[in-house]
């Protein structure tokens, strides 16, 4: 199962108005660590589908949103709750480390 994709156009509806906490993975094709962490995020999304949504935003195709949130390093994984950023995780990490970072949203 692959996680859902969001865009500049769908960001307000899909992310900012999400009822559940939602994590946005800011990524790009040319970023090796982004590709490495992607299957791990798919796995976390699958295992915790009831608690946390995880979506992907390609920063090349959607520069407006990437710029708005000041992305300067990817992968950047931001958790949004009620339209606000409540958690920032930067850089590819092994699954247990990511789960520890996200513990409050997965419990």
């Amino acid at each position: 199962m692959s996680t859902k994709t969001v865009t500049d156009d769908s960001f307000a509806t899909d992310v900012l108005q999400s009822e559940k906490p939602i994590m946005v993975d800011f990524w790009a094709e040319w970023c090796g660590p982004c590709r490495a962490v992607s299957p791990i995020l798919d796995k976390i999304a699958e295992e915790h589908a009831d608690k946390l949504s995880i979506v992907k935003l390609n920063v090349d195709d959607n520069p407006e949103t990437a710029m708005k949130y000041g992305i300067t390093s990817i992968p950047a994984m931001f958790v949004f709750k009620d339209g606000e950023i409540v958690k920032r995780v930067i850089g590819a990490k092994p699954k247990p480390a990511l789960e520890a970072d996200l513990a409050e949203f997965l419990a």
């Binding site: 090349d60 000041g70 390093s73 990817i74």
Partner: peptide, 17 residues
């Protein structure tokens, strides 16, 4: 500041500058 301007990977983050 790591991820907010401090980086160890130019190929990952260069395009944002």
């Amino acid at each position: 500041l790591s991820g907010y301007g401090v980086s160890w990977c130019a190929t990952c983050d260069g395009a944002f500058f």
